[in-house]
Each structure stands twice: as structure tokens, then as C-alpha cells.
Measured scan of single mutants.
Amino acid sequence: MGMPNRKYADGEVVMGRWPGSVLYYEVQVTSYDDASHLYTVKYKDGTELALKESDIRLQS
């Protein structure tokens, strides 16, 4: 078993793309699913969504 190939840690605050949009919002990573390679993130309004790594970026 190798290390999970994840870029962002639980609790890390990053920018997540809103689905169907080009806009990124501040989100907190809450979990990562090794099987689906999706991150569960929480937006400031409390919305929780699963995002692909390509829809997440570090805060500038």
C-alpha cells in the first residue's frame, strides 16, 4: 500500500470551484475518498460538495 495520492489535507482551507461555474470560493477540505478520488469540501455557507482535485486550487 502506497501513500494515498492526495494533494490537500483534511482541514486545509483552499479554493473550490462552484460546480458549473468558473468561480472559485474559499472552502475547507473535510475528507478525501481514495476510491472516487473526490474531496468533500465545505463552503462558507455550510454547503458540502464533492469536488475533483482539478476543481480545487491553493489560495493565492
Rank of each mutant, 00 (worst) to 15 (best):
K42V: 13
L38V: 09
K52Q: 11
E26D: 05
V14K: 01
Y43C: 13
R6P: 04
Q28T: 15
M3D: 13
Y24F: 12
V41K: 00
S31D: 09
S54N: 10
M1W: 03
A50R: 15
V22D: 14
L51E: 00
T30S: 09
W18K: 11
V14T: 02
L23Y: 12
V14Q: 01
D10V: 12
D33L: 04
G16T: 08
M3F: 12
Y25T: 08
D55S: 05
Y32F: 09
Q59H: 14
P4L: 12
M3Q: 15
S36E: 07
V22Y: 13
E48H: 10
Q59N: 13
P19W: 06
V41L: 05
M3I: 13
D33I: 03
E53M: 04
L23R: 11
K44Y: 10
Q59A: 14
H37G: 15
Y24E: 05
E12F: 04
Y8K: 00
V14R: 01
S21Q: 09
G11A: 04
K44A: 11
Y24N: 01
E26F: 08
A35K: 13
D55H: 07
D33C: 06
G11I: 02
M3A: 15
N5E: 14
T47F: 07
I56W: 01
S60H: 12
R6Y: 03
D34L: 08
N5G: 14
V22N: 15
D45H: 04
D33G: 02
T40I: 12
V29Q: 00
M3C: 15
V27A: 12
S31G: 14
L38K: 07
D55Q: 07
Q28I: 15
R6C: 04
E53P: 06
L49K: 07
G2P: 15
G20K: 05
S60R: 08
G20R: 05
K44E: 09
E53D: 08
T30P: 00
G2A: 07
G16M: 10
E53A: 06
E48R: 08
T47G: 04
L58S: 15
T40E: 03
G11Q: 04
G16V: 14
I56N: 01
V22P: 11
D10E: 06
Y32K: 01
E48M: 14
S36W: 06
G11N: 06
L58A: 15
V22A: 14
Y32G: 00
V29P: 00
L58Y: 13
E12K: 06
V22Q: 14
V27Y: 06
M1Q: 15
Y39D: 00
G2T: 08
G11T: 03
A50Q: 15
Y32S: 00
P19L: 05
M1V: 15
M3H: 15
G16R: 01
G46W: 03
E53Y: 05
G46A: 04
K44L: 10
D45E: 03
D45I: 03
